[in-house]
Computed example of a mutant assay.
Amino acid sequence: MKTIVLSLFFSIFVFSLLNAQNNNVQEIIQQGVELHDAAEYKKAIEKYQEALKIDPKSNQAVYEMSLSYLQLKDYKKASEYSTKVINSNNKELSVGAYAVKSEALAEMDMIDEAIQLLKDGLQRNGDEYLLHFNLALNYYKKRDLDNALTHVKRAIDLDKTHSGAYLLYAYTLNSKKYWVQSIFSFQMFLLLEPDSQRSKNAFEEMLQTMRVKPASDKPVERSFIQQQLMRNQGENNQNASEIPPLSIVDGLNRNFVYSAITHTLDSLTQISENENLYICFKEVNEAILKVLEKENNSSKEGIFWNFYVPFFSYIANSEYYDIYCRYISSSYFPESLAWWKNNPNKARNFIRWFEKGDNPDT
């Protein structure tokens, strides 16, 4: 009996000791994460190394370290540590580790290897948003736009809450000369992320795509891709005086859209200079949607006709259309940002309506 009691006491003591050690490791890792989020990447790595001295098998510490090395642009170490996580067969960290390693490989000009790695990751982990998004990004960098579209659409299907996927979708559509479709993918992005630097750049490119603003000699800076590569490929270097592709694509007669744009712009020539660009955007966008709404019918298939057109037409036909235009243009027009600051009640009503529709009490 004494032996049993001593054995039980020892087991409880060891369990308590291990539990305390694990809590200590998690606390140190959390300190590292906070340092990482504050852009103190080297100090974060020191914390993860401290955690690994206590628990050399901590995959969480190794994974977080790979993220910090990635931010430091030490791509070899980011690849090395993410590989350790992949080889550990840790289900919770596997997808993130594949994403880190693929990004590190791509930054080392090993895009084909990054693509193959992500395909392996999909086989191992199943359909995952992050893996499809990274595949789309790498295909986009290779100028394989068809595969980029396939994977970014799948990423959006899997998770419709990530703004970056809509932005990449807009870029890819525009590069494929699907300029009308890209306009509304830009707007989906701006709905989710209206107030960042890349929002401002995206809005600028959208204005050029809508022919509201002429393009400059220097392409608008795009996220995800180096500017020099954009210049070399002639990416996003369009001229508002040139006629865009007007052939019918996926049931969309782009000639009708272009005619609506030019007619609207011609009718707005007398607007005062101060508000000209914002009003042009607002009116041209509404004119495009009226054409698309008229063209949409039960024979049209695909996400553009079944989701984008009804969704944005619903907004355009509501009492909140002007507020919506102010919202998605707040990073670009100072007066739009000022409007949001000066009209908090209207802003809140729009957000409530956007989240709950016409029945705010439900």
Results as ranks from 00 to 15, higher is better:
M1F: 14
M1W: 11
I4Y: 13
F9C: 15
S16D: 14
L17K: 10
A20H: 13
N23T: 14
I28M: 08
I28N: 12
Q31A: 14
E34N: 15
D37Q: 15
D37A: 11
D37N: 15
K42P: 10
A44P: 13
I45K: 02
L52P: 03
I54P: 03
S58F: 05
V62Y: 00
Y63E: 09
Y63T: 13
L67Y: 12
S68Y: 03
L70V: 11
Q71R: 09
K76T: 13
K77V: 06
E80D: 13
E80C: 07
S82G: 05
I86Y: 05
L93H: 04
S94F: 00
A99P: 01
M110W: 06
M110Q: 12
I111S: 00
Q116L: 06
Q116N: 13
L117F: 09
K119R: 14
D120S: 09
L122G: 07
F133N: 04
N134P: 10
A148F: 04
K160E: 13
H162L: 11
H162R: 13
H162A: 11
A165S: 15
L167N: 07
L167P: 03
L168D: 00
Y169T: 01
L173W: 02
K176I: 09
K177T: 09
Y178V: 01
W179M: 06
S182G: 09
F184P: 01
F186L: 01
Q187C: 07
F189T: 12
L190S: 02
L191S: 12
D195R: 03
K200E: 08
K200G: 08
M206G: 00
M206A: 01
P219H: 06
R222P: 02
L229T: 13
N232A: 10
Q238T: 06
E242C: 05
P244M: 01
P244K: 05
L246I: 09
D250T: 04
G251N: 10
G251M: 12
L252C: 01
N253F: 04
N255Y: 06
V257D: 05
H263T: 15
T264V: 11
D266E: 14
N274Q: 15
L277T: 00
Y278V: 12
C280L: 03
V284M: 05
E286K: 15
E286F: 13
S299L: 10
I303D: 11
F304E: 11
V309K: 10
F312G: 01
S313V: 04
A316E: 04
S318R: 03
Y321H: 07
C325H: 04
R326P: 04
Y332L: 05
W340Q: 11
A347H: 08
I351G: 09
G357L: 12
D358S: 15
T362L: 10
